[in-house]
Amino acid sequence: AEKTGIVNVSSSLNAREGASTSSKVIGSLSGNTKVTIVGEEGAFYKIEYKGSHGYVAKEYIKDIKDE
């Protein structure tokens, strides 16, 4: 099942092309942005936001229960 997560940073969080800190940054998400978690790979979540996919470090995403 898809989960919703909240970007848990004070400034912004980089979204990357792949599940690695050396992957190209494809965008950034500001704190408290809601994202859909579609998968996980190592220390990263694969997320969907406004129709695009990217990878973000798990430690900066807070899971919330689907309402």
Rank of each mutant, 00 (worst) to 15 (best):
S10R: 09
K50L: 12
G27R: 02
E59R: 10
K50F: 11
E40F: 04
N8I: 11
S52P: 00
R16F: 15
G18V: 07
T33V: 09
L29V: 09
Y60S: 08
S10L: 12
A43L: 12
V56I: 08
V7C: 06
Y55F: 11
K24E: 07
K34M: 12
E2S: 15
G18M: 10
S11N: 13
S10G: 11
I37R: 00
K46M: 09
D66I: 14
E40L: 04
G31R: 12
K65W: 11
G51V: 02
T4A: 06
A19S: 08
F44L: 02
Y49C: 07
Y49F: 14
E59V: 11
G42W: 01
Y55M: 00
T21L: 14
D63C: 15
D66H: 11
I61T: 00
A15F: 15
E40M: 07
D63P: 10
I64N: 05
I64Y: 09
S22F: 09
S20P: 02
Y60W: 08
L29R: 00
I37A: 01
E48I: 15
L29G: 00
S10E: 13
G5F: 08
G27E: 03
T4I: 12
G51W: 04
K65D: 09
E59L: 08
Y49W: 11
I6M: 07
Y55N: 00
I47E: 02
L13D: 02
L13S: 03
I47K: 01
G39P: 00
I64R: 02
I26L: 10
H53T: 11
E48L: 14
G39E: 04
E48P: 02
A43R: 08
K58L: 04
S52K: 12
Y55K: 00
A57S: 10
K62M: 12
K3E: 02
V25S: 06
K62N: 10
S22C: 13
K62Y: 09
K46P: 01
G5C: 08
G54R: 03
N32F: 11
D66N: 12
L13M: 06
A15P: 05
K46R: 10
I61F: 05
S11Y: 08
K46L: 09
S20V: 05
D66C: 14
A19R: 02
S23R: 02
I64S: 06
A43G: 12
K46F: 05
T33N: 04
K24N: 08
Y49V: 04
S11V: 10
E2I: 15
V25D: 03
F44E: 01
V38S: 03
V25G: 04
K65C: 12
D63Q: 11
V25A: 06
S30Q: 14
K65L: 10
E67D: 13
A15Q: 05
S12I: 12
K62R: 12
T36Y: 13
G51R: 03
V56Q: 03
S30G: 08
K34R: 11
E17N: 06
I37G: 00
A43C: 11
D63H: 09
G18Q: 14
N8G: 09
S30N: 10
K34Q: 10
K50W: 07
K24S: 09
E59T: 07
N14D: 15
G31V: 10
E17C: 11
E59Q: 10
E40H: 04
T36N: 12
K50R: 10
S11I: 11
V25Q: 04
G27Q: 03
A1F: 14
F44Q: 02
E2P: 15
S28C: 13
V35R: 00
F44R: 00
V9Y: 07
N32Y: 11
N8V: 12
E59Y: 07
Y55Q: 00
G54N: 01
A1P: 11
T33C: 09
T4R: 07
K58T: 03
L29E: 00
S30L: 14
G31I: 08
G54L: 07
N14H: 13
S30R: 13
S30W: 09
K62P: 01
I6H: 06
Y60L: 07
V56C: 04
V9P: 07
V38A: 03
T4Y: 14
G27F: 15
S23T: 06
S12Y: 14
I6S: 04
A1G: 14
K65F: 12
L29S: 01
S52W: 13
L13F: 04
D66Y: 14
E41R: 05
D63M: 15
V56P: 00
F44S: 01
N8L: 09
T36K: 12
D63I: 15
N14E: 15
K3D: 02
R16A: 04
G42P: 01
K3S: 06
E67K: 14
V25L: 06
I6P: 01
V9F: 06
Y49E: 01
D66M: 13
E2D: 09
V35D: 01
I26D: 02
K62E: 09
A43K: 13
V7D: 00
E2R: 15
R16L: 15
E59N: 07
E67R: 09
S28M: 11
I37K: 00
A15Y: 15
Y49S: 00
S28H: 11
E59C: 12
L29M: 05
I61R: 03
E41P: 00
A43V: 08
S12K: 09
H53N: 05
Y45R: 02
I6Y: 12
R16P: 04
E67P: 12
S28F: 10
Y49R: 00
E48M: 13
K65Y: 10
Y55L: 03
I47D: 01
K34I: 13
E67I: 14
I37V: 05
R16G: 04
I47H: 01
I37C: 04
Y49P: 00
R16N: 09
E59I: 12
V25T: 07
S10T: 12
V56N: 00
G42F: 02
S23W: 03
S52C: 13
K3I: 09
V35G: 00
I26S: 02
G5P: 02
E48Q: 10
G54D: 00
K58R: 06
V25N: 04
S28I: 13
G51S: 06
N32E: 07
V56A: 01
I64P: 06
S23G: 04
T36C: 11
Y45K: 01
S10I: 12
E2T: 15
A57R: 11
I47M: 01
Y45M: 02
V38M: 08
G39Y: 04
T4E: 06
E41W: 06
G39D: 06
E48H: 10
Y60P: 01
K65Q: 13
A1D: 09
G54I: 06
T21A: 13
T21R: 09
Y55G: 00
T33M: 10
S30K: 14
V38I: 14
S30C: 13
T4H: 09
S23F: 08
Y55D: 00
S30I: 12
G42A: 04
I37S: 01
A57F: 10
V35C: 04
S10Q: 11
E17Q: 08
Y60G: 09
S20A: 07
E17L: 05
V9M: 07
F44V: 01
A19M: 05
S28P: 07
S11A: 10
A19E: 03
G31C: 13
K34H: 08
E41C: 13
E59M: 12
V25E: 04
S22P: 03
